[in-house]
Simulated scan of single mutants.
Amino acid sequence: MLRIALMLDADHLFTLANGDEDRFYTVLKSLEKKAPCRMVDAITPAMLAILKQMLHCPYCGMTQRIFLEGKAMELLAHKLEQICPCGCDGTGINASDTERVHYAARLLVHDLENPPDIMTLTRSVGLNRNKLHRCFRQVFGRSPFEYLRNHRLQAAMQLLQGGETNVTEAALMVGYTNLSYFTKAFKSMFGVAPGKLRK
């Protein structure tokens, strides 16, 4: 498993947001204390493509630095658009529907043990099933079920890495009642069985 961390000075981000502070108010407000801020969300297909380009950079020296800095800024643009969508990204989703999709995502992962079913979710956000699925894929690059599954497995990974939770407990805490299904899904996502990870 690879992890890429991009760190940006808060003052630099304030400079970049010059003239667009209202849109990025939530992000900028969280950085006012000058403390490190981590914003977790799904990795979209576009972000994944950039990350792969960074990992397989064909250059070296100064050219490599320029290439990686450019890709880092491109990744930042995708992340900021994900956090504060402007509603004009060319996907055909208006700002209201994008906001509803983000609300649906928050509802899905609020209680991993007891997430809402699709009918409850559609009623809560005011979108029909087909539109929710279509908009969800355009915003997050995956279906609501895939989004929930990924968050459940990532939460289980964190529990197991903490070392105080066994595999069965971790599976139950993130909403899996079938241990063999959990193990299969976990290994498919992370390339290692949960039991081996805990050891």
Rank of each mutant, 00 (worst) to 15 (best):
L107T: 02
G141D: 02
N150D: 13
K29S: 14
K71D: 08
G141Y: 01
P45H: 04
L28A: 04
N130I: 13
A104Y: 03
R3N: 06
E164R: 11
K196I: 14
M39N: 10
F67L: 01
C135I: 10
A42D: 06
V192T: 13
L159M: 09
L179F: 08
Y103P: 00
V40M: 07
E74R: 13
L132E: 03
L6D: 00
D117G: 10
H102I: 13
Y176E: 01
E81Y: 03
V27M: 04
H151M: 03
T165N: 10
Y59M: 09
N114T: 14
R38A: 12
R123K: 15
I4S: 06
T91R: 04
R134T: 12
K52D: 04
L68C: 03
M189R: 15
K131L: 13
P115D: 09
F145A: 11
L31D: 00
K33H: 09
F24M: 07
K184H: 09
K71N: 07
D9N: 08
T183N: 10
R134W: 12
A185W: 01
E81A: 14
E69F: 12
G162Y: 00
M47E: 15
C57M: 05
L2H: 10
G175T: 03
A105C: 03
H56K: 10
R38I: 14
D20H: 12
A155E: 03
E99S: 12
L28Q: 05
I4Q: 07
H56Q: 12
A95I: 15
M62I: 06
Q64E: 06
K29D: 14
T91A: 11
T15Y: 00
N178I: 09
H78F: 11
L6E: 01
M1R: 01
N128W: 02
Y176T: 09
Y25W: 02
M62W: 00
D20F: 08
A156V: 03
R198K: 15
E32M: 14
G191L: 08
T63D: 03
R23E: 05
Q138P: 10
N18T: 13
E74F: 02
Y59T: 02
E146N: 11
E99W: 15
K184S: 09
I118M: 14
G92S: 08
Y59F: 15
L8E: 02
I43D: 09
L16E: 07
K187G: 12
G90T: 06
E69G: 00
V27Q: 02
H12V: 12
E164W: 00
Q82E: 05
Q154Y: 08
C57K: 06
Q53M: 11
C60I: 12
E164H: 08
Q158T: 14
E21S: 02
S124F: 01
R106S: 06
Y59D: 04
H78L: 13
V101G: 04
L179G: 00
V167K: 01
R142I: 05
K34G: 05
H56M: 11
L148Q: 02
K79Y: 00
E69P: 00
G90P: 09
L55Y: 05
H78D: 11
Y176S: 09
G195Q: 05
M7C: 05
H133Q: 10
V101E: 01
I66R: 09
G126C: 08
N150R: 05
L172K: 07
L179H: 07
T165R: 07
I43G: 01
D117A: 13
A193E: 07
L80Y: 00
Y25Q: 13
L121D: 06
G141T: 04
R38P: 08
L6Y: 02
